[in-house]
Amino acid sequence: MKKLFNIIDQYKGVLPSALMVGIFMLIPILIIVVYSFMIPNPNGGGRTGFSFDFFQKLFFCRDLFDNLVFSTGYLKIFFRSMWISIIAVIVSLLVGFPVAYYIATQNADRRNFLVLLITIPFWTNLLIRTYSWILVLRDTGLVNSMLISSGIINEPITLLYTEGAIILGLVYTYVPFMILPIYASLERLDIRLIEASRDLYTTHWGALRYVVIPLAMPGIIAGSILVFIPSIGAFIAPELLGGGKNLMLGSLVQLQFSSGRNWPFGSALAVIIMAIVLIALLIQARNSRKNGTEIVH
């Protein structure tokens, strides 16, 4: 008992924030977990009871004769979400790394200014920004009309409502989350190490490969996870740019809570997304522990 008091005494400083996290984060999560095991109510919400309905729904569906048959419908959505998110991470990395590298090699004033520029998109609503991509991508949009008027193509190419458009939307939305952590790790990197590498017979690219990228690895991993997490549950880009055709997990969750009227299933899907995120975070935690001595300098 005395020990317990000691512990409380020791941590009383973080008690208020612990309470906040408990009330506003843990409890809602618990509610969702509880919901996922309830029986769906056609009018929304869930009836008390216990069912593995969601589990069944994930893998099976009922055929014309009301028999359960194995169905890959939802699994496909799950894997598509994973796939699209991973591509979004890779593209963000390919775009974000050079940008971060460029910013990190500027002088201090310019660096701060450029970092400010990176955050500018956050000043406007995501919905509006995503809508404007529709104007750019649609058949009569900016890209197509420019390509047609310059004679490169005759017929508009379908850009909107494709997986490519979703990936573009995700990269556009989340690439700052890739740039900033990579920038943070590159900014700490001693430029003289690149010289040392050049001196020891590496080209520019060799220095990048053997010195810069390994030292930026904590930033690269942090950025990848920061892009992956919101991408897997993303809703706006898949809805608006994917046109609801290429359903992703985020849209599926939204569907279950609205027209689908299956809150338990929606909750279960949300829990699955959460589990994926958790795994990603665990990887990150392990990674940063491993690199702990290298990050701190």
Binding site: R192, L193, E195, S197, Y210, P214, L215, H297
Partner: peptide, 9 residues
């Protein structure tokens, strides 16, 4: 190099 510039990783 004056500051050694050893590769920390």
């Amino acid at each position: 190099f004056q500051h050694y510039s050893l590769f920390p990783h």
